[in-house]
């Protein structure tokens, strides 16, 4: 598939991937209702393109995202997880994004330690920043392509729905 207009690097997928012939990452993004979900909506409404692989779970606030939610997504086979919230000092819930940042930074260090480093990204954007949504998703997609498939995928026993 062509993503030439997205400046996506055309790094060939890792040959070691045993799961599929061509590695197409699955990325889960937690978006806060007021800002980053709005940014993603605006990106769509402005017909801006970003990787189809990014799928959104809406939460009221980035402060609602528990590190356990991120771990669960990785456990279920997501290759990368994004947690996105409002800009600093513009959080609809005042301090939600501050708490989220603290929690996610700690989690990033923990993921690094267990060999899943780089698979979580935390970004802040306002509902008007569709550009940042596109940049963030595109560059994270590139990063996951380079990292290759989530090793936990092998351990997932059953496919619950085809």
């Amino acid at each position: 598939m062509s993503k030439a207009n997205l400046k996506v690097k055309t790094t060939p997928p890792k040959a070691s991937s045993k799961l599929t012939q061509r590695f197409e990452p699955r990325i889960v993004s937690f978006c806060c209702h007021y800002c980053s979900y709005g940014a993603a909506d605006l990106a769509g409404a402005s017909k801006m393109s970003y990787p189809t692989n990014v799928e959104i779970i809406r939460v009221p606030c980035s402060g609602r995202v528990d590190p356990l939610h991120v771990l669960r997504a990785l456990e279920e086979g997501a290759d990368g997880v994004m947690v996105t919230g409002c800009l600093k000092e513009q959080c609809h819930f005042v301090t939600g994004n501050i708490h989220a940042e603290k929690r996610m930074q700690q989690l990033m260090a923990d993921l690094e330690a267990i060999g899943l480093g780089g698979r979580l990204v935390f970004e802040l954007m306002s509902a008007g920043m569709a550009n940042k949504w596109v940049e963030t998703t595109s560059s994270f997609y590139d990063r996951i392509l380079e990292l290759g498939p989530n090793p936990l995928k092998h351990m997932k026993k059953e496919v619950k729905c085809e």
Partner: peptide, 8 residues
């Protein structure tokens, strides 16, 4: 649900 089709 989102990732139910991911796996071996």
């Amino acid at each position: 649900g989102l990732l139910a089709n991911v796996g071996v």
